[in-house]
Every structure is written in C-alpha cells, then in structure tokens.
C-alpha cells in the first residue's frame, strides 16, 4: 500500500512540474505582452513595469523566479486588476468554485448511482428509460445551453430562483449553478453505474454466489462493490469536467469563481492570472487523481501489487 502511494506520488510530481513548465513556456512564446495597450506607454514606465514583473530577465531566470515564488505560495501580481495580487483574487474565488464543484459532484454521485443501480436491476423500468434519456440529453445539450434555459424557466418565467449573482453563497443562488454543473455528470455517472452493474451481475463470480444459494441482498452487495470501481476511476475525469464546466457556469450566472476570472483574464491577456489558474487547476486535477488512485488501491486488491 505504501509502495502504491509512493509510486503514484513519484509520478504526480513530474506531472505537476510539466504543467508549470508547459504553461510558462506557452506564455513566453506568445507574441504580444500584457502592456501592449492601444496607446504606447512611456519607455521608462514600460521598463519599470517590465522590471517589476521580471520580464527583463532571461527565460530560464524568469522560470526560476516563477517556480521559486510558486513554492512560497506566491502567484504573483495580476496585470489586469492592478491593485490585486493573484493570491488575493484566488483567496476569494477558489473557495467559491470548490464549493460549487463539491456540491455538484455529490449531487451527481447520489442521483447518478441510484438511477444507475435501479436501471440495471429493473432493465425495462422507468429508471432504465431515464438513464437512456438523460444520457442522450447530456450528450446533445451542452452546459451553455442548459444554463440559459434554466434561467428562463426558473428565474424569469416561474420566478422561483434568482437568475444570477452569488450573494455570498445564499442557498437560493446556488441551486441553478449546481444543477447545471451536475446535470451532465449525473448522466455520465448513471450510465457508467448501470453498465458496470449489469456487467457485474452477469459476471461468473456472481453466478457462483447464486449457485451457492446466497440471498439476493448479499449478491447485489457483491455486484455493487465491483460496479463502483469504474465510477471511482471516473472521478478523476469528472473533476476536470467540472472545472471546465465552472468556466461557463460562473460566466453565465455571474459567480465570482476562478472560472470567471480565468475567462476575464484570458480576454484581457492577464498573463500571471491565466498562468496561475492553469497551474492551480492542473494541481487540483493531479492531486485529485492521486487521491482517486489511492482510494482505488484500497478498494481493489489487484492494484496494490502492480
């Protein structure tokens, strides 16, 4: 078990480093800089600005500087919101995005797994139909169409819920964004669970249990444990999908999370902010995958000795 954690950790660190290096390199390769405003700045001011942001140093030195400050938890100053450091922005934005993501994944797991199991056990029941309908919907109607439709239905027509804004996380302001984020994940989790559960119920070792006359609840519990493995390994990609989704959801609902800062930063060429977002998001995905890997090792004995 310890070996599993160590090897996974040993592969996570280079991944993280590669993310930082890749995003850094891309930024520096790009034509145009953050101070390419419509009107030219005074050369002296420009030189000062470049010095403050270490843009006058050679590339490896800039990377060293960046890595050094990253290790100290300093993400650098924002070039768009001049009075703020990226740390300041993230300190407020990150908890909001994480809260949305956690709520969405929890909702997706609860609803998706329940739906998937029901669909697998009663093959022609309403749950199986629901899984099929939901998968098609989740596939064909992207999140950026779902969000405005929900706004029209619940915000403008029924007037049950606010159309946007965050209001310091008031529950009524969370419902629509979380639902929007969770909907495609519910579809995927439900389909995954249903397929895995059907496979598990047809597996030879389940036939063994039936051959030995064990009770149905015992058999279903065995099947479920095997069926949840694919769902567990989907959590890694799900985290990435939720982060991607948060870009759209936070933009449409006007939520001050990192997704929205990322889009604003991208549109205004805020190098440090965009880079910091990619690094943070990359780190979150890498760490999350690490946790999922370790959890998988705990559940599936076959992985531990690889």
């Amino acid at each position: 078990m310890l070996r599993l954690i160590l090897t996974r950790l040993a592969s996570a660190i280079p991944t993280l480093l590669a993310v930082v290096a890749l995003s850094f390199l891309l930024m520096r390769l790009a034509p145009g800089g953050p101070f390419d405003a419509e009107r030219a700045l005074d050369p002296k001011i420009l030189a000062n600005l470049r010095r403050i942001y270490h843009l006058d140093l050679p590339l490896p030195a800039q990377f060293g500087y960046y890595l050094w400050s990253l290790l100290h938890g300093d993400l650098g100053p924002s070039t768009h919101w001049r009075d703020f450091s990226v740390n300041d922005l993230f300190a407020k934005a990150l908890p909001i995005s994480v809260q949305l993501g956690v709520e969405a994944i929890a909702l997706a797991l609860v609803v998706g797994i329940t739906l998937g199991i029901t669909g697998a056990v009663w093959r022609r029941g309403p749950a199986a139909f629901g899984v099929a309908a939901l998968s098609t919907f989740g596939l064909a109607v992207p999140i950026f169409v779902v969000a405005p439709l929900l706004q029209v239905a619940f915000g403008l027509t029924l007037r049950w819920l606010p159309v946007g804004g965050w209001a310091d996380g008031a529950p009524s302001h969370q419902i629509l964004p979380v639902l929007t984020l969770a909907l495609p994940q519910i579809a995927i989790v439900a389909r995954l669970t249903q397929a895995a559960m059907r496979d598990a119920l047809a597996a030879p070792h389940i036939r063994t249990l039936r051959a030995f006359g064990l009770p149905a609840w015992h058999i279903n519990a065995h099947a479920l444990r095997g069926a949840l493995l694919p769902v567990l390994s989907y959590l890694g990609p799900a985290a990435a999908a939720l982060l991607t989704g948060s870009i759209v959801v936070e933009t449409i609902f006007g939520i001050p999370g990192i997704g929205r800062y990322f889009v604003d930063g991208a549109l205004s060429r805020d190098y440090t902010l965009v880079m910091a977002t990619v690094v943070i998001v990359g780190a979150m995905v890498v760490v999350f995958n690490l946790l999922v890997d370790i959890a998988y090792g705990l559940v599936d004995p076959r992985v531990r000795y690889d």
Partner: peptide, 12 residues
C-alpha cells in the same frame, strides 16, 4: 466451475 480465476470474486 471451469474457470477458477473468474468464479471467485476478485475483491474479497
């Protein structure tokens, strides 16, 4: 059964 590999539950 024929296949002792698949007749037993791998997780227990």
């Amino acid at each position: 059964f024929q296949e002792p590999q698949s007749a037993l539950d791998p997780l227990f």
